[in-house]
Design a protein around this nucleic acid. Structure first.
Length: 484
RNA sequence: GGCCCCAUCGUCUAUCGGUCAGGACGCCACCCUUUCAAGGUGGAGAGACGGGUUCGAUUCCCGUUGGGGCUACCA
């Protein structure tokens, strides 16, 4: 193996980029990267009725978000119609294919009859037995017809990179259509023609394509082209064991992007669906994935997509990634949520990074970070009713506590954790309560929430002025509540 | 119906004939602790079934069962 492998991802633009497609793209990309080969992208837009530019864009966006860049110009299958036809005609000329005049209606009829008899329908080759003169006559008369591939006797087999040897008796493969009566190519014809033209050496795709493979191998042979290697990846199922579909909720990679998942975590998670590095390794960054990815770890069994584990994985990446990398994804989310502007974040970049360090370890998604960042970014906070109900139960007592806290903190000349802790623990002690009994009401006053980073971190991040103001506002709010 | 693929905890998986069948997510308990996370410790939890092959099978072979895919002039 000296020539670098060439692989491709070939989605049809009929919807969003699904996690299944993304996984297939990832594996192709990883394999190409690991082996110093190329990863190409081909848009299979020959189904004019279902293909949309919007879907094509969604595929580009999804791939870009995942960081799966392709190496050459995107190939649009629809642009290669002439070559597909030429290849199909070559097959007719070299005797590998024949003209079939059976109409769709007739075929449908026979199919139904076979079904009624509980027989497996297979085209009976009647047009292949037509007298050559008759064929000529019909062609001359302009009778519509398709081109069918004449499947030879024998068995079609290959060594699949994930399944090992797979064999199909040719008798089970019918003489399939390669060119429609409107002279457009059928899927298998177009794919093989393109893969040959793109000099693809490894075809890695979902194992729902296993039954297409013998037909494609037959086409390669008839066309006199060398075979690529095939790798059929296991399907991805929903939690109910059924093939992943819309009804399972979020299935498009764009959905997860909007749910606050990091591309790094998505890649890591997807890589583990159908591949294993062996051993106990799970959390891996891109370079490590590239480094370890190989056909030895390819798995056969369909995997269930577990969003819970994805979230956990995301939490890991949120905590482990260089903080500046995380910031790159969190900042736009903060801006989109209206909590800050780009210039505000740029002005206080160091402060923001400190805040992010505090929040990321206690978050599983970018959305979690945004939610917790709110009290640190906006002027006015609102009090979570559950939090006040629990922590501000005794209004009078809380007012006293918070007022005294405010005064003690104001007296501090050094706004840092050590003196704060000293002062506040002393205050708690003077009231005969545990520190927690003081910190919790404080937390609500400072953030409006029952959960936050450590109370001293909160004070430091908020700054003295804003901290005191929040405490005063809380006291005012409690006093108002008392007189109501 | 026909053809093909697949089969270890609920889920993702390790094991390349000999293991107390390991790890991770999730779940439960405890520890840490100013909350929430994170972290730590422990717990419950699996070889679908039946035959072979072998001194010995989760592992190799066959069958059964179960699940999935394909079965178009869709891709």
């Amino acid at each position: 193996m000296s020539t670098p492998p060439r692989l491709r991802f070939a989605p049809s633009p009929t919807g969003d980029l699904h996690v299944g497609g993304a996984r297939t793209a990832l594996f192709n990309w990883l394999y190409a990267r690991h082996n110093g080969g190329q990863f190409l992208l081909r848009i299979e837009d020959t189904d004019r009725a279902r293909s949309t530019d919007e879907s094509t864009r969604a595929i580009f966006d999804g791939l870009n978000w995942l960081g799966l860049t392709w190496d050459e110009e995107v190939v649009y299958q629809g642009a290669n119609l002439a070559r597909h036809q030429a290849d199909a005609l070559r097959l007719l000329e070299n005797g590998s294919a024949y003209r079939c005049f059976c109409t769709p209606a007739e075929l449908d009829e026979r199919r139904k009859e076979a079904e009624a008899r509980k027989d497996a329908f297979r085209y009976d080759r009647r047009c292949d037995r037509l007298d050559p003169a008759e064929v000529e006559r019909r062609v001359a008369a302009g009778v519509p017809h398709v081109l069918r591939f004449r499947v030879p006797d024998g068995s079609t087999e290959w060594d699949d990179m994930v399944h090992g040897r797979i064999a199909f008796p040719n008798k089970d493969i019918e003489d399939f259509v390669i060119l429609r009566s409107d002279s457009t190519p059928i899927y298998n014809m177009a794919v093989v023609s393109d893969d040959i033209a793109m000099r693809i050496t490894i075809v890695m795709r979902g194992d729902d394509h296993i039954s297409n493979t013998p037909k494609q191998i037959l086409l390669y042979s008839a066309l006199g082209s060398p075979l690529p290697r095939f790798a059929h990846l296991p399907m991805i199922h929903g939690t109910d064991g059924k093939k992943l579909s819309k009804r399972h909720g979020a299935t498009a990679v764009g959905d997860y992007q909007h749910l606050g998942i990091l591309p790094s975590a998505m890649r890591n998670f997807l890589a583990l669906l159908g591949w294993s590095p062996g051993g106990d390794l799970e959390v891996m960054m891109l370079d490590e994935l590239v480094e370890r990815f190989g056909e030895d770890g390819l798995l056969k069994k369909a995997a269930v997509f577990d969003p819970k584990k994805l979230e956990w994985m995301n939490g890991q990446h949120l905590s482990i990634l260089p903080v500046e990398d995380v910031a790159q994804w969190v900042m736009p989310a903060l801006i989109a949520a209206g909590l800050a502007t780009a210039s505000e974040l740029a002005e206080r970049h160091d402060w923001f990074i400190l805040l992010l360090e505090l929040l990321r370890v206690r978050s599983r998604t970018i959305d979690d970070v945004v939610r917790q960042a709110r009290p640190f970014l906006v002027e006015e906070i609102t009090y979570d009713p559950d939090a006040t109900a629990k922590q501000w139960k005794d209004a009078a007592h809380t007012i006293t506590l918070l007022s005294e806290t405010r005064d003690r903190l104001e007296a501090l000349s050094d706004w840092s954790p050590e003196p704060m802790e000293e002062a506040l623990r002393e205050l708690a002690e003077s009231h005969g309560i545990t520190a927690g009994k003081l910190f919790q009401p404080m937390r609500v006053a400072l953030t409006g929430l029952a959960v936050s980073p450590g109370i001293f971190d909160v004070l430091v991040m908020l700054g003295k002025e804003r901290s005191l103001a929040r405490l005063e506002a809380a006291v005012a709010s409690l006093e108002r509540g008392q007189t109501d």
